[in-house]
């Protein structure tokens, strides 16, 4: 690179300043929530919304939410729904995408029209609720797991990944006498693993973040995922569900007053941690090309 580096013009600096402010609007609220959740409850009620360092470090808020008998089961429910749900999502998506990308498949056009209709037309929550009722899945976590088993949009993305696998490889597998299941799982899937990894993460995030159907279909507090409990506290202002009746009595004697906002933030942190764990992999698999692209022109 012998290109001479020109100094950055005013416009570049202005753009960078604006972009920096935008990123601050994303970072500061998150850091503030983390900071307040890690603060000493007796000091944190006075914290300003722009403070990003804890006041008097303490894990008290986390102790309180995890000693609430509702939280730990909710976390485990979320993990169960996410793991089983994502496994079903990705398995069905891979299988369907493989079939739909086989050359010369009879009825492919009709099938694609069918899937597009499924994508475009949403029957709405009430008719769906009726089906869950008819299937006797009300109150069961399987209602939520099964009712969102395949996303057509992700299915189409998966098909694109399979289309990029060179056709010769399928021919070779066929000559070796491999059946479709073997070709799919030991030839095609490994070659499309970037796509599978990406979609597994997308599905996983959707599963982890699900709250609406879980709130309707699963009513029992011991079976709902964390997001449902979080919603009751954040949106509906239901303190008892989050903190627990026993805790409310116990801790009020220890601390003059609890910082309910900080308790809410601690729960938000718990709900966000799995996303942050997944996030670097999303960047690595899905946005790698976008992030690596050099400046052209």
């Amino acid at each position: 690179m012998t290109k001479k580096r020109k100094p950055l013009g005013i416009l570049q600096w202005v753009i960078m300043a604006i972009l920096f402010l935008i990123t601050l609007s994303m970072l500061i609220p998150l850091l503030h929530i983390l900071a307040r959740s890690l603060s000493d409850p007796s000091q944190s009620t006075a914290m300003g919304g722009l403070e990003i360092f804890p006041r008097g470090f303490s894990l008290m808020n986390y102790q309180i939410i995890f000693s609430n008998p509702n939280i730990m089961p909710a976390v485990l429910n979320s993990i169960f729904i996410t793991l089983v749900g994502t496994l079903i999502n990705i398995t069905l998506t891979i299988m369907a995408a493989y079939v739909l990308t086989r050359p010369g498949l009879v009825g492919k056009k009709i099938l694609m029209v069918f899937f597009i209709i499924m994508m475009l037309f949403d029957p709405g929550i009430v008719p769906e609720y009726m089906v869950i009722k008819s299937l006797k899945l009300m109150g069961s976590q399987w209602s939520v797991i099964l009712c969102q088993a395949v996303n057509v949009y992700y299915l189409i993305i998966m098909m694109r990944y399979f289309q990029e696998v060179p056709q010769d490889i399928y021919e070779a597998a066929k000559i070796d006498g491999a059946g479709h299941m073997r070709t799919l799982f030991s030839v095609a899937a490994p070659l499309a693993k970037a796509g599978i990894a990406t979609l597994t993460m997308f599905y996983g995030v959707v599963r982890w973040n699900e709250y609406y159907r879980a709130g309707i279909f699963i009513s029992s507090i011991s079976k709902v995922p964390l997001q449902v409990i979080l919603r009751r506290f954040v949106v509906d202002g239901d303190v008892t569900t989050l903190v627990g009746t026993q805790n409310l009595m116990d801790y009020n004697e220890l601390v003059a007053n609890l910082d309910f906002t900080a308790l809410q933030y601690a729960t938000i942190v718990v709900a966000v941690i799995p996303i942050l764990i997944i996030y670097p992999f999303v960047l690595k698999f899905y946005t790698k090309d976008a992030m690596a692209g050099g400046v052209k022109g």
Partner: peptide, 29 residues
């Protein structure tokens, strides 16, 4: 148009994140 590639990557890493937060969490934020 950004010429500082490092800065661009920083903007990308931060700005893609909110998409992955649940609406409940976003409402809380």
């Amino acid at each position: 148009e950004l010429r500082l590639k490092r800065f661009r990557q920083y903007v990308q890493v931060v700005s893609y994140l909110p998409h992955f937060l649940s609406w409940v969490v976003i409402a809380g934020i």
